[in-house]
Structure formats: C-alpha cells, structure tokens
C-alpha cells in the first residue's frame, strides 16, 4: 500500500502536462502506480485522486474497468495465454492446461513463491503466430509445451531479466517532451489565420 514516490510524482506531473485536462492522465498514472508496486495500491489511488483533483471513487471507477490493472499483488511474471479463436484453433487450451499443470496453479492464480501468475486472455494481436502468450506484455510466439517449460526455467534463472522486466513495467522508453498546453487552441487558430 503506497503512495507514489517523489520521483514518480515528477513523472506524473510531466504526463499531466501533456493533456488539456488533468483527468486524461488518469490511465497513464495508474500504470505508473502499478509499475511501482506491481499492482495498483489503494493509497496510490488516493494519491492519484489528489494529483488529478478527483474523488478516489472516480479513480477506482475508471481503474477497475481495465483488465490490466490489478488491485492485489500478483506474480512477478504474469503469463497471459491467449485462448481466442485463432489461438484456440491451433492448441491454445492445451497450452493453457499444460501451463496450469506445470506451475501447479489455475488460470487467475499465483504461485506460492510469488513468481508466476497465469491468466487466459483475449486476443493479443499475434494471431498469425498462434498459439501465443505474453509474459509481462512481452510476446512469445508459436509456443509449444516444451518452449513454455524452457521459458519458465529461463525466467527462474534470471536469464530473461533484460527482456522481461517485472510486472507493472510497460514501456522502458518514455515520451520525453512535455508540451505546454494552454494556448493550443488559439495557436491553431493563429496557424489558420497565418495562411
């Protein structure tokens, strides 16, 4: 349960500055909280509400709409197995069941060591590479049960650390520019007038 660190508050302010209205920064800020704790903590939502002049209920209302946000700790590695139609046609359920057996948890669960969670998810836009999965939103294509086991071993041994950051971290590269907003409308008008 934690509020955003000072460092992240700075990032948050930068993100807020990119939008004409503060509330637009809500989803990016929730990601920031999830990056910090691996899930969106209650205090973080209160903090975000403060930063955006919202009621915490509004923050939670939006946050809970989106599947990527977790409100309780999950594994360090979240494995999302796609079972949608293109993957189902070429063995996604076998892969999911294999994964469940291998890790000893059911879809939606987390291993006791806190390392892995699995979920069966909707289409992840890798349909031509089915069956496909994501680990912390990094893709694995045409995954066979053997490839799955090897991946787990690699993750356990820290071999994929560079490629797969811990749960919550999305892009490791961020947009840098902070754009000053207040005059955009009139500036656009000026551009039109200038021509």
């Amino acid at each position: 349960m934690s509020r955003l660190t000072d460092e992240r508050v700075k990032t948050a302010q930068e993100i807020i500055g990119r939008f004409p209205r503060k509330k637009s920064a809500l989803i990016p800020l929730l990601h920031l909280a999830q990056e910090q704790d691996g899930y969106v903590a209650q205090d973080a939502m209160v903090h975000i509400a403060e930063l955006l002049d919202l009621a915490p209920a509004e923050v939670y209302g939006t946050a809970s709409f989106y599947e990527m946000f977790k409100f309780h700790p999950v594994g360090k590695y979240c494995i999302n197995v796609c079972t949608n139609i293109s993957c189902q046609l070429v063995g996604a359920w076998n892969l999911l069941h294999h994964a469940e057996e291998h890790l000893g948890i059911k879809s939606g669960g987390t291993t006791d060591d806190g390392l892995f969670s699995i979920e069966d998810v909707e289409c992840i836009a890798a349909c031509t590479e089915a069956p496909a999965l994501q680990v912390n939103y990094r893709y694995r294509y045409k995954v066979t049960p053997e490839a799955f086991d090897a991946m787990i071993t690699d993750l356990q041994n820290g071999k994929l650390t560079g490629e797969v950051p811990p749960h919550g971290t999305l892009a490791t590269v961020r947009q840098e520019t902070t754009t000053a907003w207040s005059n955009r409308g009139s500036e656009a008008q000026a551009q039109v007038d200038a021509r």
Binding site: L54, A55, A57, E58, Y60, G61, S64, F65, Y66, E67
Partner: peptide
Amino acid sequence: GDPLISFTSR
C-alpha cells in the same frame, strides 16, 4: 457534485 459512488468493474 459528490462523485463518491461510481460504477466499478465492467
């Protein structure tokens, strides 16, 4: 103006 209840989940 008291947005203290909201829809949650989906």
